[in-house]
């Protein structure tokens, strides 16, 4: 069995890449995909430690993370479509003022 440290390093790499995308990009679609990468890094940790301790709690909780990621993407898609409808663009630096 592969040591758990390897999976932790993989998860740290995926999380850092997602963080880089979140910091660098200005397109809302890339924001969404970077957040997906970071949530998946958390999932790797859950499942790696589930196998490490022989306990199913991590696997069960990773399912909740997946459900929340799906919900987050559904709302994110709605927000991106509204952004595109009003600004003809998905650049997150364009909308700077609230309505009131």
């Amino acid at each position: 069995m592969v040591p758990v440290e390897y999976y932790l390093v993989l998860s740290a790499a995926v999380f850092s890449i997602g963080l880089y995308g979140l910091l660098t990009r200005e397109n809302a679609l890339f924001f969404l995909m970077s957040v997906e990468l970071m949530l998946n890094a958390a999932n790797i940790n859950f499942i790696a430690f589930s196998a490490q301790w022989g306990n199913l709690t991590g696997q069960t909780f990773s399912l909740f993370v997946m459900a929340l990621a799906a919900a987050e993407v559904a709302v994110g898609i709605g927000i991106i479509l509204v952004l595109y409808r009003n600004f003809k663009d998905v650049d997150v630096t364009v909308p700077q003022e609230m309505r009131w």
């Binding site: 679609l29 969404l32 997906e36 499942i47 196998a51 799906a70 898609i77 991106i80 479509l81 595109y84």
Partner: peptide, 29 residues
């Protein structure tokens, strides 16, 4: 990691759901 059920859910929920939604958004914008 012996997590077959989360693997199946990964394929169904992420690749079948989330990725299709993101593809929708890419093509609609």
């Amino acid at each position: 990691l012996q997590a077959t059920f989360p693997a199946a859910m990964q394929v169904l929920v992420y690749i079948g759901g989330v990725l299709v939604l993101i593809t929708f958004a890419v093509m609609l914008t």
